[in-house]
Design a protein around this nucleic acid. Structure first.
Lengths: 237, 237
DNA sequence: AATCGTCTGTGCGCTAGAACACATATGATG
DNA sequence: CATCATATGTGTTCTAGCGCACAGACGATT
């Protein structure tokens, strides 16, 4: 992490941007702009959190690691959300890790300041709770998708969710990392990605994936992507 | 559903039981005892909810149904929880169904009364939020488990979670229903259950499953069961 | 330009679980 | 007790995805 600056408006995080001016001004002294490097660990399973993070251009992946080292993703957080929901949900920690899946900026806020503002029952509270509900939908859909859909469909879903959360059409991400997120083998990603490339939906070289045809990707994805997207739009749109 | 009576103490739902006396007394006029039949639908995907439900002896399953009719469970709610979190999270509806997986009693409460009490920022609010965090862990673990573990391991997890939420050692539940919950084929459940029966962990006949050896079941389950259990104990214990 | 670490492509055998097709058992009901 | 719907057992074939073993291919560094 680096650079600690009070953020200037317009705020690039959608939760913060949605706040009434008065509330935002109250929070502003507690906000600091930081930047996350690729693969940086935001929090460990069960680990204490001093800050919550509102990603701006970064994307953070919520990952679970099994005892045998196998991993699988439960959700993604970009500039529509917040990392560290346990701090206002009351549990303080969660049994998973959060790692930076796409390098970029975020705004951090001291846990105490978050909790104080949350306790006021203001618009901030309502926003965080609605976001959490949307996140629950994302996690649920991941559960269902893991059970019922092919690696290729899931890769499409994952690319689309990531694409929605990053500005550019290029994602910096090796197949190895994607495999960890999806909880599948790297080779499985290679063949699925190969098919998507043949279809003209994406192109990639050594950790740089370009989204070429978003429509095609949506057509190849399972319904899970749209369910999650619609629910985020409904709750936070 | 039937019988509408004001519940006498001691309250059989752990969330309600954990409330300070003053708060419980304030809620009490809004509580009604009801009973749920097996397979009754508590709410439909996207459907409006007039009440929230605090199961006492009933168990409710949170299910997602795909467009093609395939189903998979995302979570279970028994007497440790509440059905209808969307009503206090602010979204009002959720994109899944809730169906009664084990017939029994519940206490219901008008949505408006719930929301009023929740808005006070009282102990009730904290309790509901901590419960919701525990539920998130359960859903996440389901996602991971769906990806990484065998049907047999998942069946063990599911039997244990159900057993924790019901008093008796007997579960009324056909293999067909279990298959829908786990998102697998009925035949898959038959063989997995057959192995558990051979191992002496359970016995069953036509929709009546008896838990014979809980220890053995825990040994055969994946770590997912324990993670969820520990997290519920930590947050609500 | 040569080297070397890191990605990506591909093939092969193996297994869990799906899809399908029935056979059998159980218990409620007449 | 006879019937019949429902639940369960079992076998066969098929496929997605795993595990493993390498063979390129790229690109940074010297």
């Amino acid at each position: 992490m680096s650079r600690s600056v009070r953020p200037a408006e317009p705020v690039e995080n959608r939760l913060l941007a949605a706040l009434p001016a008065a509330e935002y001004e109250r929070l502003r002294p507690h906000l600091e702009q930081i930047s996350f490097a690729l693969a940086e660990v935001v929090y460990e399973s069960g680990g204490h959190l001093d800050y919550v993070y509102f990603p701006t251009t970064a994307i953070v992946s919520l990952l679970y690691t099994m005892e045998d080292g196998a991993t699988a993703e439960m959700g993604l957080v970009g500039n529509e959300g917040i990392v560290g929901i346990a701090l206002f949900m009351g549990g303080n920690t969660m049994p998973n890790r959060a790692i930076v899946q796409s390098a970029g900026g975020a705004i951090r806020m001291k846990a105490k300041a978050l909790q104080n503002e949350f306790a006021l029952g203001s618009q901030f509270q309502h926003l965080l709770l609605r976001y959490t509900q949307a996140l629950i939908t994302q996690i649920s859909q991941t559960a269902v998708c893991n059970r019922l859909h092919s690696v290729e469909q899931q890769l499409c879903r994952w690319l689309l969710l990531s694409h929605d959360r990053v500005k550019a059409d290029e994602l910096i991400m090796t197949q190895e990392m994607i495999a960890d997120m999806l909880g599948v083998r790297r080779e499985g990603v290679t063949v699925a990605a190969g098919r998507l490339q043949d279809a003209g939906a994406i192109s990639y070289v050594r950790g740089r994936i370009k989204i070429l045809d978003r429509q095609k990707l949506e057509a190849l994805a399972c319904e899970c992507y749209r369910v999650v997207k619609d629910e985020f739009d409904r709750l936070l749109g």
